[in-house]
């Protein structure tokens, strides 16, 4: 469970981080200052501590302590016979010299390359389309594209494994109409990663569409009307109005999708177990598989690999969040 709420509930994060329309910043700031003035002469230390206590304790036990413990294990050599010895960054060196680690990074990056542009383009086109249709059709489409978001990775994997079957599989039947196949998608090292990307796209494009759509609704209709009077076509309106005005939302979506993509491992875990010939061994699956090796060395090694990923991905996402929300992010 420690993993899921942070990752699954992208709806909430996305909505709150990206969608505050830029124009409302001064208003909400003013309101906040008023709140501040009220409370400065009423310090509620005790009530406040009681109110945040459950959250503070739970995060302390199940996030901060495990994180510190991970750091400890990554810098100490543990052995069954001797006292732990501080080895500094030695494990970090081992990980960074390990070709299998770099191979998994390459697989993760390729997966991102297969999924993120596809998710962004499909979501953008669908959102642009939904924006032009009537309310009823728009409502139906919004609910429909949201449905895949709530289907679990396990069920998605199982269904796509079934659909990818070389004999009797739906996908081979469909591509048969254009004279292709049949392919044994999941046992072909060339095809397995692209094949896993398809359910990855399917799971993510819907929520991306809804977030983009919310961004599009914030653009005043009058801009488009003016552009239309000037004779601008769909592509010109998109290029000169929609994209520039949605820069922050689009950037946010690319960053979160990239980070989520680099961390994908449930799909390959269930669909291919990282195979064939490690062609779907994403970084987190590589790390997860190392966990199964109970020796202290393997434990420290895989934890260190996870921490390296954490530094890189967490650093990038924090930086981008700061850029996007600059003054709004952390001002409690």
């Amino acid at each position: 469970m420690t993993m899921s709420p942070q990752s699954t509930n992208r709806l909430a994060t996305a909505a709150s981080v990206a969608l505050e329309p830029e124009g409302t910043a001064p208003a909400s700031k003013r309101r906040r200052r008023v709140a501040g003035r009220l409370s400065t002469h009423v310090m509620d230390n005790r009530t406040a501590y009681v109110m945040i206590a459950p959250m503070v304790v739970l995060l302390g036990m199940f996030v901060w302590w495990p994180l510190l413990y991970s750091f400890y294990l990554s810098t100490f050599e543990i052995s069954f016979y001797e006292e732990p010895v501080f080895v500094g960054l030695q494990f970090y060196g081992y990980v960074l010299e390990d070709p299998d680690f770099w191979h998994s990074i390459g697989i993760g990056a390729t997966y991102v390359l297969y999924t993120v542009p596809a998710i962004m383009i499909i979501a953008f086109l669908v959102a642009s389309f939904i924006r032009t249709v009537g309310r009823k059709v728009a409502g139906l489409l919004k609910t429909t594209v949201y449905v895949p978001t709530v289907v679990s990775a396990v069920i998605t994997s199982v269904v796509f494994v079934f659909m990818y079957r070389a004999d009797g599989g739906l996908i081979n039947w469909l591509i048969g109409f254009v004279g292709l196949g049949p392919f044994a998608f999941l046992s072909d090292p060339e095809l397995a990663l692209p094949a896993i990307s398809v359910p990855g796209i399917w799971l993510a494009f819907g929520i991306t569409t809804l977030i983009m759509l919310a961004g599009m609704y914030d653009i005043p209709q009058s801009y488009y009307e003016a552009a239309q009077l000037e004779g601008a076509n769909f592509f010109q309106r998109t290029w000169f109005i929609t994209i520039p005005l949605m820069k922050n939302v689009l950037l946010y979506l690319v960053v979160t999708a990239t980070i989520a993509g680099m961390q994908q491992f449930e799909l390959p875990l269930i669909m291919t177990q990282g195979g064939p010939t490690n062609s779907t061994m994403t970084p987190n699956l590589f790390i997860f598989n190392q966990f199964k090796d109970p020796t202290p060395y393997a434990t420290s090694f895989s934890l260190t690999a996870a921490l390296i990923l954490f530094f890189v991905l967490g650093g990038i996402s924090m930086l981008i969040f700061r850029l996007i929300r600059s003054d709004k992010a952390i001002d409690a």
Partner: peptide
């Protein structure tokens, strides 16, 4: 406390998966 409560948003599950297991 705000930074303490909000930073976990950026901590990937995999970095604490094994040690969370040890804790529980």
């Amino acid at each position: 406390w705000w930074v303490y409560c909000i930073t976990p948003m950026f901590i990937p599950g995999m970095a604490i998966l094994l040690t969370s297991y040890v804790v529980v």
